[in-house]
Amino acid sequence: MSEFKDPKNFAKTQFNFCWVIALRAEAIPIIEAFKMKILDNQSLFPIYANETTGHALIISGIGSIKSAAAATFLKNYLQIKNYTAWINLGIAGFSRDPIGDIYQAVKVVSKESGAVFFPGLRLSKLLPAETLVTVSKPESKYNEPVLYDMEAAGFCELVPSFSCNELTYVIKIVSDTANSSSTLITKNLVRDLIEKQLSKISAVLGQIEILVQEEKRRLSLPDEVEDFEKNFRFTETSKHQFREIYRKWKIMFPTKRLDPSEFLNSQPKDIILQLEKEILINAENWNAL
């Protein structure tokens, strides 16, 4: 582990995209495209990341449970924030040719449990939408007009609780159909299929990033608040109250900064009261527009 960066050092890193991918062959084109480096290959799941491009990736292995477990592991390992987009990318069987086509799964059904998920916002200008069925054994009949994979349902069951359903995406590339058996799939073919779709994947990421940035703006705590809080002994409850009052205060006084030296020897409740007082005075002539 010593040759790898200590995960604690990632607490401040802002990863915008987390990839959960079953197979190494599926992951390599993504790892290379976003210049990720291995962080840890001794843990249960290999993890790759690049702080500069804001991408992290975990190789989960095959199966729904592994996909969910790997996503949880990655989240905890890198302390992923609640505005990050999560993407399950991989190959899938389909009832229709040709192989190589790329789809967004908008409805994911677990064949085993019957559970149904509707991940993501529609990206229809970039990707056609399909229903996907997650199976526990490889599908060879392709009877239904749907995609088949072995991970997405597990991923969708858990991952929306990390950020939200609208930042959870399932993207699949057709690797086998009734006319092109899954026995023909090789590592090189998988890599090739994904590489050929990289420009589309990049365009999709561009769209998703707009949502990530919006959520980041909404959910991130300004440094000013964190710095300020270090100077006082806030309890969990008073911290919550303080942050809510601060939000209002900052809207009312966008150019003012909170200066801890103005509150020397103050208790959290005094600080909250002071901000409330300033807000109340300003409210008399408040322009709400």
């Binding site: 149904v116 929306p160 609780s161 939200c164 359903n165 919006e214």
Partner: peptide
């Protein structure tokens, strides 16, 4: 794109959805 579902509650107002997005 038309996608069949069983009941609207399968996808409407579920936990972890984000109204704003």
């Amino acid at each position: 794109t038309w996608v069949p579902i069983e009941r609207y509650q399968e996808l409407f107002n579920k936990r972890h959805q984000n109204f704003k997005l």
